[in-house]
Design a protein around this nucleic acid. Structure first.
Lengths: 338, 338
DNA sequence: AAGTAGCACTGTCAAGAGATGAGTGCTAAA
DNA sequence: TTTAGCACTCATCTCTTGACAGTGCTACTT
């Protein structure tokens, strides 16, 4: 167990280090506290022994360890959101605009969040797996070229170009689309493929299958797009201003990571309901070993969850980011629930 | 005028410097040529005097100047495309897939191009200004929520969520959409706004205007999206592996630039038909002062031009990039012309 | 006249040597 | 339990030095 003073010392070290990015010495703390540097040195030695602090070299000041950050986030910060009213009002403003569709809203929210935090933000769009088919259309464009449209109950639209085999009968095609609309209306995207195959086997659309295998494939392809996880990334270059990324090698690693689709791996495992904080090497991805990721799910409708996350250096302003992220997630959840 | 040997010396210096990123000394060249280092030094001194070469410091080897690169690209390279068959086959493969819509095709082409070149690639999507309205639809989703769809003759779709004022009459709304379809069918996107205003003033849709101002605004907004230049960026992090970006300050500048929408400024002025090569400070953007941009237009249909570009350090493999870019642009142009 | 050999000169870079200073641990005293 | 004081440890900065890669110039050769 830590003494009260040790907790204070740890808290101040984290906050001081977050501010300055320099190892914190006992003299610095003795100015902030009513104790001499020697006293604080003793506490620091104890904290180091317990694994909350580390030294960069034998005669340097102390730096929080990953364990130290965790203790800070989970015990020392507690529930107290440092909700400076200013930030929140910007979020409120954003969501007043009713006419944003889901994707726009998410994108703008992420831009705002990365501006407010000066870190990189990621949103894993709610996989549309649980949204439902509202309407399917095939719009002829030019000769054999058509656009297939699928619209969901959440106002999301996917379109796909199709080139029909020459000499396709237009009326027949219309009938096919009608059938699809009948079959698939209000079916969750996740079950579309299943449903189509079921109906094929139960004769409902047997003639359709005979008619054209290619169209069915294209159909399934359009639905697959809904289920693909889309993500939004904002403020990548914010990270470059963090002193931990003054080394080009690290920058490369980081930027490469952002450019790959591995981002999904970073965020996707957060299935829990609440906020998850992953500090340093807890992120299994090596490019993230000096970073912390704070993520929190939001829910557009029953079961339709997405995740928003902030990526920063382990030396992150947890104090500021956590309440901000919670507030934003709550509002995004509300957005489509009314 | 340059002597033949001076041309050879300049060519070799450019190519050597492109390969190694180190200033090229006379001894290096004397190994590649049948002349002593002293002879070459004299040629180098002349070339420097004429502004084709520069020194990094008084006793360093030579580095091509911007003028030197230009001479290399325009005179020394000539028309000879160094078309190594391997690369081109990958491009051919890409375009065999018929069912890519315009955006997908562009995106994939850019990814491929950045892989092949190891530089950053930009595509300015063909501004849809000249594509024509094919169909407009309003799909009701949930209570007052609707999705407005606009489909063009090139298979491009824009969608926008609309929340209708409460108690909107559905039948009347359908009629509005019908009118819009009548008025706007086959109208180029660029003229939609004009056309609507014209028709309002000439009574054709007077009742419509009275009916709901908000819907018209939303309409115009959806069309504005088409005219917004969209761009695709690929291989940003490739630049980080160039030795000229071993300095974090430059990396910041570059990445910041890529993250802003200033990219449009970089590319949009290329109205000429052919290829444009901008070297170093010819790019008016300060973040690009150490970069070269090679851009080339492609044309989807009459007047519907986009631009693809490769951004690399001034020390770029012009020899390889130029034929690759030409080939790709030609194929993208063909794609929608059949 | 064109090309070459040789030499003095110039700037970069890496390694090593102090000097400086911020910070520690430990001990003894309050 | 806290504090003052002291010896010690590294990191970092600056300065010097020598090696090295390259140049410009001059005098010589063909």
């Amino acid at each position: 167990m830590l003494t009260d003073r040790q907790k204070i010392v740890l808290k101040l070290i984290v906050e001081e280090f977050v501010k300055t990015a320099e190892p914190v010495g006992s003299r610095t703390l003795s100015k902030l506290l009513e104790y001499s540097s020697a006293t604080i040195r003793n506490d620091m030695a104890d904290l180091e022994e317990d694994g909350f602090l580390e030294k960069t070299h034998s005669s340097s000041g102390r730096v929080p360890s990953e364990k130290g950050y965790h203790y800070y986030v989970e015990v020392l910060l507690g529930e107290n959101g440092d909700e400076s009213a200013l930030d929140m009002s910007l979020i409120d403003d954003l969501f007043k605009n009713q006419d944003l569709d889901r994707d726009e809203a998410i994108e703008q929210a992420m831009n705002l969040l990365s501006q407010l935090t000066n870190y990189t933000t990621i949103a894993l769009g709610p996989s549309a797996r649980n949204s439902r088919v509202k309407k399917i259309e095939l719009v002829p464009i030019y000769e054999e070229m058509c656009v297939l449209l699928v619209i969901t109950n959440l106002g999301h639209v996917e379109s796909k170009n199709i080139t029909l085999p020459k000499g396709t009968n237009t009326d027949e095609l219309k009938r096919v689309i009608e059938i699809f609309n009948e079959i698939l209306y209000d079916v969750p995207i996740s079950q579309v493929s299943e449903k189509i195959h079921y109906d094929i086997n139960h004769d409902k659309i047997k003639d359709l299958l005979d008619y054209n295998q290619k169209i069915i494939e294209t159909f399934l392809d359009a639905f697959t797009r809904f289920t693909q996880s889309k993500y939004y990334l904002s403020g990548q270059s914010n990270m470059l201003y963090q002193p931990e990324f003054s080394d080009v090698e690290r920058v490369r690693e980081l930027m490469n990571f952002f450019e790959q689709n591995d981002i999904l791996k970073l965020v996707e495992h957060s299935e829990s309901t609440g906020m998850t904080v992953r500090i340093g090497r807890e992120n299994e991805i090596s490019a993230m070993k000096n970073c912390s990721v704070i993520m929190i799910p939001y829910e557009v409708r029953e079961g339709e969850k997405g995740t928003i996350a902030v990526v920063g250096p382990t030396r992150m302003e947890y104090q500021k980011v956590i309440p901000l992220l919670k507030y934003l997630a709550a509002h995004m959840s509300k957005l489509y629930k009314k």
